[in-house]
């Protein structure tokens, strides 16, 4: 195992990358399961109920029971569906959410290793392209189901994606104008040296946040699903683990987008207290950074869930209106203003 200490060796890279992938996966999967749990308990608290508290201590084993139930249910495929696409769709909706996490720095360093799976120089471009893949799973599910309610859900999903992707991308542009780099690690470095970008770019953050809700199909933008009118939207025909995959995909996407927002606007793994702004020098410091990052993500998750249970749902045309006529001009104006300020500072 000598090659482990030789950072230039290809085997080192392979070994640690594989380890980080496994670790990230091992952390994210339970996070998905427990954010479902969190959603159920939190919604219960909001709605004056108790929520699941019977399985294990404080109901903490509920996610396991849910997963087991999903596996034991009959995996029913209706005869009228397009089988190949019908089976692929749940996977297509879940995988991109996990792929996003690859470029997000979830900690500083541990030993010699940076806590990011892939230190891409075009990290943000990669993120946007992968995140937008997620919607294909939903569109595919809607069309492959060959049934009217899922079909409407699928159409809505594609329209929603077009409306929000652009505003989301535009909102992030000023961030990179300030940082001067597309690498997410550099974005965090910039914030550690100055103020968090949420204070410098509040408008960009708000647009990004709202677009994130639309990206992840969460209320008030859960139009593809909107269970009161489209029964269950795109996943109406799905059952068993296939349905569970959509479900997990939604939460994984929430975690991914939360992680992205933490990175872009809330300083990633840094905290301006206790010297946590500097890269860690010890293993304990590295773990502290990871915990800071996860804590920030958890705050966003709570916010996502809270919003869901408090407000009604937008209508299809209102959402398009908001995306195209409000957010897109606002995001463009924000870019121009940022550019003007930067230009004046250079004069």
């Amino acid at each position: 195992m000598d090659f482990l200490n030789d950072s230039s060796h290809w085997g080192t890279f392979l070994f640690f990358s594989a380890l980080k992938v496994v670790m990230a996966f091992a952390v994210v999967m339970p996070m998905v399961a427990y954010s479902v749990m969190l959603e159920r308990r939190l919604s219960a608290a909001i709605q004056d109920r108790i929520g699941p508290n019977r399985v294990g201590p404080f109901g903490l084993l509920q996610p396991l029971a849910d997963g087991l139930k999903s596996f034991l249910k009959e995996d029913f495929t209706p005869s009228h569906v397009r089988k190949v696409y019908f089976i692929i769709a749940p996977a297509v909706s879940m995988i991109p959410a996990f792929l996003t996490i690859a470029v997000i720095p979830f900690g500083s360093v541990m030993g010699t290793q940076a806590m990011v799976i892939a230190n891409l120089n075009v990290g943000i471009l990669y993120t946007f392209s992968v995140v937008s893949l997620g919607v294909y799973g939903i569109v595919l599910a809607g069309w492959a189901s060959n049934s009217k309610y899922p079909f409407l859900g699928g159409i809505r999903a594609s329209a929603q994606m077009i409306s929000y992707e652009i505003a989301m991308g535009m909102a992030a542009v000023p961030v990179f104008m300030l940082v001067g780099d597309l690498n997410l690690g550099k974005v965090i470095e910039y914030q550690a040296n100055g103020a968090w970008l949420v204070f410098k770019q509040p408008i960009a953050f708000v647009i990004f946040l709202v677009a994130a809700f639309a990206e992840t199909n969460r209320l008030p933008f859960d139009l593809p699903e909107s269970e009161t009118e489209l029964v269950s939207g795109y996943n109406t025909e799905y059952s068993s683990m296939k349905f569970a995959l959509f479900f997990m995909g939604e939460y994984a996407a929430m975690i991914a987008v939360s992680a992205l927002m933490v990175t872009l606007f809330f300083g990633g793994w840094t905290l301006p207290f206790f010297g946590l702004n500097e890269a860690a020098t010890s293993i304990a410091g590295g773990i502290a950074h990871i915990l800071v990052f996860l804590g920030k993500v958890a705050c966003f998750m709570v916010f996502f869930i809270w919003i869901r249970w408090m407000i009604p749902r937008f209508r299809y045309d209102q959402l398009m209106d908001l995306g195209w006529r409000r957010f897109l001009p606002l995001a463009l104006a924000n870019i121009i203003i940022t550019a003007a300020i930067l230009w004046m500072q250079h004069l």
Binding site: S43, Q47, D48, R49, L219, S226, W309, M310, I311, P312
Partner: peptide, 16 residues
């Protein structure tokens, strides 16, 4: 009504 337009919590509060 509120539940139909997406606000689920109102329903449970009035139900109480």
């Amino acid at each position: 009504f509120a539940m139909d337009v997406g606000a689920l919590t109102v329903f449970l509060h009035t139900f109480t």
